[in-house]
């Protein structure tokens, strides 16, 4: 069932793309960012940081839409997101959605 109408200006909508920065040595491996990322960008890695925890790594870097939820939900101030300015990487919404 198609619940959403297709916007008329679909070609012009640009989805923002973000770049995630992880300060690995501050991470304590609580897993909040991995669990609550709406696009499943992050995953817990196998590597250890200096304190012996497993910090997350960026699994799908192109999926990030700069919602800043991982930044807000990090209790250790160890992750932050910046807007990716590179226009070549920005996919238009028609390419992305549609289904």
């Amino acid at each position: 069932m198609n619940l959403w109408r297709k916007p008329l200006d679909l070609q012009d909508i640009k989805v923002a793309r973000g770049e995630i920065h992880i300060i690995k040595d501050l991470c304590k491996g609580c897993g909040f960012c991995v669990e609550y990322c709406p696009k499943d960008v992050l995953e817990i890695s196998e590597e250890f940081n200096t304190k012996g925890y497993h910090p997350p790594y960026i699994k799908n870097p192109d999926e990030c839409v700069e919602c800043h939820l991982c930044e807000m939900l990090c209790p250790e101030f160890a992750i932050y997101v910046t807007l990716k300015e590179d226009n070549n990487v920005v996919k238009s919404a028609s390419e992305e959605g549609g289904q």
Partner: peptide
Amino acid sequence: PHIWCPGCGIGLAVT
């Protein structure tokens, strides 16, 4: 890094 345990919510209140 602060002294709060992994998974503690006080860091979120500060954020």
